[in-house]
Amino acid sequence: MVIGKQAERVDPLSEFTGKGVKIAVLDSGVNVYHSHIDQELGGLAFRVNREGGIELHEDIRDYLGHGTAVTAVMRQMAPDAEILVGKIFDEKLACYPSVLAEAIDWAVEQEVHIINLSLGVNRNHQVIEEACAAAIEKGVAVVASYNKQTGLLWPANYPGVFGVRAGEVPRMEWQLNALNNFSACGFPRELPEETQIYNIHGHSFAAAHFTSWLARLYEKQERKTVQDAMSYFQQYVS
């Protein structure tokens, strides 16, 4: 297989805003009062109770800041997209595979167009793989970050999932590395030039940037299934 456009920046679709696109952000929740959010967002939190079952509650407050930073990227890059919050992390950036799978299933039930997973695990979990496959089968795009250095390769490695890592890519653009494998900007929000070097950086935010770009693509083409997105990217693969 020969991959085209590997080092070429593609159309940023800067005139679109993600209007009409619904995104589920499965992360540590969100601080709706943060200046980068400043919007009431709906959603649910998922956790394992003492009996080992998964329970749902409405407290989606972010005690870690990760979900807020990821969501802030989308608020900036796709400001008119509708964001639904699925809180799966609480006191640390870790959860049971069954919790993530349950949240993916819930997002599909909410009829989202894109699920953003700014996260990764170091081995395959069948329950997560099945949840991703079911989402894709129903036309929902799943975007996941990955980190080769640490071995956090799933769910980005699952068939049909858009895997994204941080790279030297301008904001609002992406770079194709291989089929369903992309690089995107790894910075959350732009800082003044002299302080940009101190900004946090990572693969989580690359996934958020790619999700934002995909939302703008969906708005442009007025078709909002993962199969439509895959057809679009096929033009860059030869």
Rank of each mutant, 00 (worst) to 15 (best):
V2T: 09
V2E: 13
Q6T: 15
Q6M: 15
A7R: 06
D11Q: 02
D11C: 03
P12R: 00
K22D: 03
K22C: 04
K22L: 03
I23R: 09
I23E: 09
L26S: 01
G29C: 09
V30S: 12
N31I: 08
Y33R: 14
H34M: 12
H34G: 12
I37C: 05
D38P: 00
D38E: 15
Q39C: 11
E40T: 10
E40N: 10
E40P: 02
R50G: 15
E51M: 08
G52D: 08
G53I: 00
G53D: 15
G53R: 11
I54A: 05
L56T: 08
I60M: 07
D62I: 02
Y63Q: 13
Y63S: 15
G65A: 11
H66F: 13
G67D: 05
A69L: 10
A69Y: 01
T71Q: 04
T71V: 13
M74C: 06
P79D: 03
A81V: 05
A81Y: 04
I83F: 10
V85S: 09
I88T: 07
I88W: 02
I88G: 05
F89Q: 07
E91L: 12
C95F: 12
A101I: 09
E102I: 00
E102Y: 04
E102K: 11
E111S: 15
E111A: 13
L117W: 06
V121T: 14
N122Q: 14
R123M: 12
R123H: 13
N124R: 11
H125V: 02
A133G: 08
A134R: 15
I136N: 12
I136L: 14
I136K: 07
E137S: 14
A141K: 01
A144V: 00
S145H: 06
N147W: 03
K148P: 08
T150A: 11
L153K: 05
V161Q: 07
G163E: 03
V164L: 00
R165H: 12
G167Q: 05
L176G: 05
F182N: 01
F182L: 06
F182P: 05
G186F: 08
F187S: 10
P188V: 01
E190R: 12
E190P: 04
P192R: 07
E194P: 00
T195S: 09
N199G: 15
I200H: 08
I200S: 05
G202R: 06
H203D: 15
F205C: 02
A207E: 00
H209V: 01
F210A: 04
L214Q: 13
A215R: 02
Y218E: 06
Y218P: 00
E219Y: 03
R223F: 05
R223A: 07
V226F: 04
A229R: 01
Y232R: 03
Y232Q: 04
F233P: 02
Q234C: 06
Y236R: 06
V237L: 15
